[in-house]
């Protein structure tokens, strides 16, 4: 149980080939079987939403689909729970602003 062991080493993971997804247009690497939130964490990204009122950054909090803090826009569809949705090759995750439906706003 060496201190520098990674989670993947700990469980002896031999994952299928990694693939690319994008976060706000830039590529990040995801492993098959990871949720979008896990892939974002692995890339050092902790926030992918701004709140409706204060515009504050948020990311995964409860990690099990209960808190809805991890909502993201995935392939153009807002309000997906990133901690539950599995990452798929080519997924485009974008920072969700507010309720994610600005396109419906009356200007």
């Amino acid at each position: 149980m060496a201190r520098d062991r990674s989670p993947a080493e700990l469980v002896g993971a031999a994952p299928d080939a990694a693939f690319e997804i994008t976060f706000d247009g830039r590529p990040i690497t995801a492993l098959p079987g990871q949720s979008l939130a896990a892939a974002l964490w692995a890339a050092g990204i902790l926030a992918w939403r701004t709140t409706r009122v204060g515009g504050r950054p948020r990311g995964a909090f409860c990690g099990i689909g209960h808190c809805f803090d991890c909502l993201a826009t995935v392939n153009g569809e807002p309000n997906r729970r990133a901690c539950l949705v599995p990452a798929r090759p080519g997924d485009a995750v974008t920072t969700q602003e507010g309720h994610g439906h600005d396109d419906l706003a009356v200007r």
């Binding site: 692995a42 409860c62 099990i64």
Partner: peptide, 18 residues
């Protein structure tokens, strides 16, 4: 960001290895 549930951290580690 970076404040996460203790159970949430455990869940993300157990399933996502992160």
């Amino acid at each position: 960001p970076g404040v996460v549930g203790a159970g949430g951290a455990q869940a993300m580690l157990k399933s996502g290895l992160v």
